[in-house]
Design a protein around this nucleic acid. Structure first.
Lengths: 341, 341
DNA sequence: CTGAAAGCGCTTACAG
DNA sequence: CTGAAAGCGCTTACAG
């Protein structure tokens, strides 16, 4: 990896590094002849400017950091895809890190990215995280930061989310419209804002449709896993034999519910309906297919990058920074796990 | 983002940058008193060495590049997870890029990573790629390179794979042992070495067990998708009504096959058995669960990083570089889509 | 024990 | 039209 430098070219041509640099960058004050010979030699030697030197000079790395709770997860890997593509199309590369929902790791990784001098950071907050000084510190340093999916109202910066409350409202409305009356909710962790928002949507639609909200029908899944779904479906049905629908935080949880119902000969959706969240591939192949909400994860990744790059540019021009909150549209996808309305 | 520099500290303390640097790095030839005041001030100002300057000085970036065909894919996202974790534990950060199975994009991305001055590159070759000068060029530049999953014997460098031939052999052997006689194979693209290896394993086990290999029973899936599975299951069953098993390149393809069989009232595994590949989550939740091969993807990512870092270190010490080919063990996982033996 | 100097590879204001 | 000099932030061999 000993790469060709400006110095090498200058030496061979017997001219100064300055002139080589100018020739390559198309400055006007270089003779046509010099320019041409520099260009040719650079081409032949396959000269590539040293990105590190440029980074140092320009005080930027053309790199952004991305911290997500979990890489192996359909929703997040779609986000990563969107982030990487959008960044690449705009000349940026992406460093990805996984917090594993740990607040400690999240803090450490954010610090690593700052130390690495990334130009900006994209973050989906870990479930464990409940205080936000580490994010405030980032803002204090004027590190461009965009939160997505798992965000917090506490921190004042740009954000990209879906309207979780509305999405949950619509999903549960479908259940109500199809005749369900006793709808259990397998929700996500208390600390997670989107779990809270979905829960709110669930409560709201019940109340607006004359169904009394019963906290006893709400179960907490911290794992978002198929296993959680099985476990809490069993528990819920034992505690309330007349449940006629499950609204779950995730398609994996919904799948667990489905497996439990199948195994126990409970007909879906005739006896019990099931609604998931995310439109993961799993929701389409399971039988019956699971009614769910599509979150356009790739789009979320792209949008987040686009807001981040805008902020980076604004800061570079020393202009005042504006923060945006983009709410992406969701789409309720009806499949066979719910009754037709 | 105006960060504290050595210069700032030097100015405040009225000493030279040299001394500050030495104090911070614990050099012996600095008075205890100076050392202490430097340390304290650095701590107070929250001084962090500028990584870019260090990169330039040390001619390394502590960053590695990772190019995979597809980010949204259980196997690869597990690899990414392994890569990112192992790298992080060793002080490296990872830049991830997706080639989308395109040779052109792969070339471009490899170049970007070189230009970015990453310390090494991890690559799963795109299906479209059939010539390898771009990889030879990397080697010529002495850029540390480790191939994984999708590799080629043509290029002489370290590699991490599973033993695809053996895995396929074992999977099909299970079908034979359970009484299947007419086993169709929905294979991957011709260009892809692991598709070729699995096909070889399939051919070998048939012949070793007295079943004549019939090329007419082999179908090419280029999409690795559920749709492909449906399509080719239908085609195969139309062309050969007595097929009693499918061995597929991927769990998604196997799922498509399963859906087609279910839909047409064909009993699995009584009438037709189905075997997938990869042990994706989908293979567990589908009914019946799909018999498949686990590839320990996370482990593959870790192993690849570990070989890469070893090579980086060796090159740094100017020692001769050795190449390794690590073959990771696979595990056949029996589920309800095949008959007990 | 301290610090000026050179260097990593580049850019650019300035002098000639 | 050309190039010496300064600078981005750091390290380190060398002189004092």
């Amino acid at each position: 990896m000993k790469e060709v430098t400006l110095k090498d070219i200058a030496k061979i041509l017997g001219i100064s590094v300055t002139t080589v640099s100018k020739a390559l960058k198309g400055y006007k004050d270089v003779s046509e002849e010099t320019r041409r010979s520099v260009m040719m030699l650079a081409e032949n030697l396959n000269y590539k400017p040293n990105a590190i030197a440029l980074n140092l000079k320009n005080q930027e790395t053309k790199t952004i950091g991305l911290v997500i709770p979990e890489i192996v997860h359909t929703f997040f890997s779609n986000v990563v895809k969107g982030v990487v593509s959008e960044a690449e199309e705009n000349g940026y590369l992406v460093i990805t890190l996984q917090s594993s929902e740990s607040n400690l790791i999240e803090k450490k990784q954010l610090e690593m990215l700052v130390d690495k001098r990334v130009d900006g950071i994209l973050l989906a907050i870990a479930d464990e995280t409940e205080t936000y000084e580490h994010l405030e510190n980032l803002l204090k340093k004027e590190m461009p930061l965009v939160l997505f999916d798992k965000v917090t109202p506490t921190v004042n910066c740009s954000k990209v989310t879906i309207d979780d409350r509305k999405a949950a409202y619509e999903a549960v409305k479908l259940l109500i419209d199809s005749g369900c009356k006793k709808i259990a909710h397998l929700r996500g962790p208390l600390g997670a804002p989107n779990a809270a928002d979905r829960h709110e949507g669930y409560v709201k639609v019940l109340e607006e449709n004359g169904i009394t909200y019963d906290p006893g029908l709400v179960y907490l899944c911290d794992g978002y896993s198929v296993e959680d779904g099985k476990k809490y479906a069993q528990k819920a049905l034992k505690e309330h034999t007349d449940i006629d629908a499950f609204f779950t935080i995730t398609d994996h949880v919904a799948t667990g519910v489905l497996l439990h119902l199948n195994r126990n000969g409970i007909k879906v959706p005739e006896q019990v309906s099931v609604v998931g969240f995310s439109n993961s591939p799993i929701s389409q192949v399971v039988i019956p297919g699971i009614t769910t909400t599509d979150q356009s994860a790739v789009q979320m990744g792209r949008e987040a990058v686009s807001l981040l790059l805008k902020e980076i540019a604004t800061r570079k021009e020393k202009k005042p920074v504006e923060y945006f909150h983009v709410q992406l549209p969701t789409k309720l996808i009806q499949r066979a796990s719910t009754k037709a309305v």
